[in-house]
Design a protein around this nucleic acid. Structure first.
Length: 309
DNA sequence: CTCTGATGGCTAC
DNA sequence: TAGCCCTCAGAGT
């Protein structure tokens, strides 16, 4: 469901909506009751994302912290396959640059909540949470509910660093040297490159859609062993992950089908949005060959045998 | 109404 | 490689 771009958007949104405040923190489901009690009443500090991992520090007083620093209590969330956050609030509860509109559900899809248009500021009251809500952050103007996460826990600085130590470079951070590091991590291995792109120790953030479509866009066969892909091609792959994921972060949707391939009247959303992902048996936009699907390490893999050799 | 799949990832064998 | 965790929209009966 959520690839790294979604988690980066969420970090921005939750920062805008809660940082500097002392949100009321609860666990309607009860499974995070202890963690909620620990965070409740503390000041929320700016959240960070690394790949698909979300971290939000909480401290007794406002302060500036580095990711993984000792001191604050770090809320660590991994959405896994179907975790999501949903938002609700009055007209002041808006994260302009990161969500684009208030009260969206962010997960596999983002959408406006019902009745968004007519809701008025004075009307708003916190909705009764679903009984699966693991954690609710609440402030005067709105709430954020987390459901279905793979992980939701409180870590100290060293706990955060342990998580980060297992993660490779994140295309959405793209620090100096990351491109080279990605190339060398892939070229060290004989595992198929398609598998390495999903290995979060090789690069943190890409999921099954970016894997399929970015490999297509740079013309790499996902079955090719990592050590047999040229440095030049891997460099292009990194660059493509960086640009595709930045677009996804900006727009809140994965749209990896190159514009020149988007048909006038797409048969469905898959044809509109993707190059090869979910397009098994359909004609490649570029060469007409039928898109192929197979299983790779338990995940569905899609590619064009004509373009990706 | 029931059933399945999904943009993840861990652990045990 | 299989089993397990976490949830629910949309497809199928």
């Amino acid at each position: 469901m959520p690839e790294g771009h979604t988690v980066h958007r969420l970090a921005g949104a939750l920062t805008e909506l809660f940082s500097g405040l002392r949100p009321k923190i609860t666990s309607p489901q009860g499974r995070f009751a202890q963690g909620a009690a620990k965070l409740d009443g503390q000041v929320a500090l700016p959240a960070e994302a690394w790949g698909k991992h979300f971290f939000m520090p909480f401290a007794p007083e406002p302060m500036t912290v580095e990711l993984g620093e000792d001191g604050p209590d770090w809320l660590h969330v991994h959405l896994g396959l179907y975790g999501s956050w949903s938002f609700d609030g009055d007209t002041e509860f808006i994260a302009e640059d990161t969500i684009g509109a208030p009260r969206r559900k962010i997960g596999e899809q983002e959408k406006l909540a019902e009745g968004d248009d007519e809701r008025v500021m004075t009307d708003w009251e916190p909705p009764i949470p679903r009984d699966t809500v693991r954690i609710r952050l609440a402030q005067e103007h709105g709430i954020a509910d987390l459901t279905g996460p793979n992980q939701c826990r409180v870590l100290d600085g060293s706990g955060v660093r342990t998580v980060l130590n297992r993660l490779g470079p994140d295309p959405l951070r793209n620090y100096p040297g990351d491109r080279e590091r990605f190339i060398s991590l892939v070229r060290k291995r004989r595992v198929p490159v398609g598998q390495l792109v999903l290995d979060q120790a090789v690069t943190a953030g890409p999921g099954n859609i970016y894997r399929a479509d970015c490999l297509f866009r740079v013309g790499i066969n996902p079955l090719r062993p990592g050590n047999r892909v040229s440095e030049a091609r891997l460099g292009l792959l990194w660059d493509d992950l960086v640009s595709a994921m930045n677009e996804g972060k900006r727009d809140g949707i994965i749209l990896t089908n190159p514009p020149e391939y988007v048909p006038e009247d797409p048969a469905d959303e898959d044809d509109r949005r993707f190059a090869v992902y979910h397009r098994t048996g359909r004609a490649c936009w570029r060469c007409g060959t039928k898109i192929v699907e197979s299983d790779m390490a338990g995940r569905r893999l899609f590619w064009c045998p004509g373009c990706q050799r």
